[in-house]
Amino acid sequence: MNAPSVAPSGPLPVIPPLVAVAMRPLPLLPLQRVLSGFLQRICQRNPAIFDRLGEHSRARFGIRPTDLPFAFVVEAAPPHLTVVRDLPRDLDARISASLANLLALLEGKVDGDALMFSRELVIEGDIEAVLALRNAIDDAQLDLAAELSSLLGPLAGPARRALEAARDSLIGGSRRPFK
């Protein structure tokens, strides 16, 4: 039997506005390269995501962390991620929440329905595509620390421990055991 989940209790932290302002001048390209590699890695290791996305596998999702000065445009097939200052108009769906909530959603640590109904998550556009994306991610049981650290070759071990510590302090201890 799995250990009981240590799900986050109460609202997750947001990035302080001053920090967000300080991040504004940062160049986006390096971040885009890292995250693109990250996305491709996730898609390679979890091909069932495409099956679950079905007819929405070519949808373009705009993801805006509300506490960051930039946003992401994500496509699953083929895997493609762009970092932008402002989301373009020609998207299939837009998803907005704090960075911590978005990360918690990716790892299945919070219930997307509850987050949306509490207004901490805002979804616009093709709701069916977003629902398919959510269910595909749920089934993949992503571990962001493991996925990201696996890009770092010989540094994967220590990087994973550092990323897990950072994640745990931000969005809670263990992953949700049930989807």
Binding site: N2, P4, S5, A7, D111, D113, A114, D138, R176, P177, F178, K179
Partner: peptide, 15 residues
């Protein structure tokens, strides 16, 4: 929680 999500309940239970 009252959730109609297909697979949410065990999470709520263990949480």
């Amino acid at each position: 929680q009252n959730s109609s999500k297909f697979c949410e309940w065990p999470y709520a239970l263990t949480r």
